[in-house]
């Protein structure tokens, strides 16, 4: 009798002990509330980028409608302070919104700096060298005629005017960059960044080339700084050169 009772007691105690200790091993136990991973870690960067940037800059930093950020040369060329201000304040008058600032939902400068560090760790190769041509324009006065000539020689083959594009090879067409609406929508800096760094994800070369000339031949010569200035000025000149019949309020902003 007493032996049986001892067995019973043992079974009950062992059973209760098992359940109590097993509690923490079961799959339903909620994971402890950890701080979100820091933005300079791979996980933290990917989550912040995926939530706030991927919509325009592309799921993996490429193939978005906006400038690809998985671009070693671009990341090596633009100084941290500029990247920080772009992410924090956005670029006024363009479609780049800011995520920082003093508002309730604003991300702090320190967090943005960590995010940029994370981005460079993920997408900038260690041996990346900055572009030979400054990412920002200097104050030099550019020559429109030179710009026109360079455009015809290096860009026109892939960027023909839409109105007379019927005969062009569609598969290589990058589309009309002289479109009056397009040049109204983008800043000089956008034009310059596109020319200097290109869009490798869409097959557009940067200032280093190679280009295709009007006859379809390959041109290896890189653009010079003054040629880039001239190109930007030439394309930007289409803003005022073209007459828009449907302009209404708001174009200036």
């Amino acid at each position: 009798m007493s032996a049986l009772r001892r067995v019973h007691t043992c079974v009950v105690l062992v059973g209760a002990g098992c359940i109590a200790t097993a509690c923490d091993q079961l799959p339903g136990k909620p994971a402890p509330r950890l701080e979100a991973p820091a933005l300079d870690t791979a996980a933290g960067f990917a989550s912040f980028y995926g939530d706030r940037c991927a919509g325009c800059h592309g799921i993996d930093g490429t193939h978005g409608p906006a400038r690809p950020l998985r671009d070693s040369v671009y990341l090596a060329s633009v100084p941290d302070a500029s990247l920080l201000s772009i992410v924090r304040d956005g670029i006024h008058g363009t479609r780049m919104p800011g995520t920082g600032g003093a508002s309730i939902t604003g991300v702090s400068d320190a967090q943005i700096q960590k995010f940029l560090t994370g981005m460079k760790r993920a997408w900038m190769s260690a041996d990346a060298i900055p572009s030979a041509i400054a990412w920002q324009a200097n104050a030099a006065v550019a020559d429109l005629a030179t710009g026109h000539a360079v455009f015809d020689a290096r860009c026109g083959h892939c960027h023909p005017r839409a109105r007379n594009a019927a005969g062009s090879s569609a598969s290589t067409a990058g589309g009309d960059v002289m479109d009056p609406f397009y040049v109204r929508l983008v800043s000089d800096q956008h034009l310059r960044t596109s020319i200097v760094f290109g869009r490798s994800d869409l097959g557009m070369p940067g200032a280093a080339g190679p280009f295709v000339d009007a006859s379809g031949a390959r041109v290896e010569t890189a653009l010079t700084a003054s040629e880039v200035d001239a190109l930007v000025a030439y394309i930007a000149s289409q803003r005022t050169a073209s007459t828009l019949t449907t302009v209404s309020k708001g174009d200036a902003r």
Binding site: D51, A54, G55, G174, D179, Y182
Partner: peptide, 17 residues
């Protein structure tokens, strides 16, 4: 608008405009 990318096939072969 910030987190759902436009898939590459809707970006490829588009003009700058």
């Amino acid at each position: 608008w910030t987190s759902t990318p436009i898939a590459p096939e809707f970006v490829a072969h588009r003009s700058p405009l």
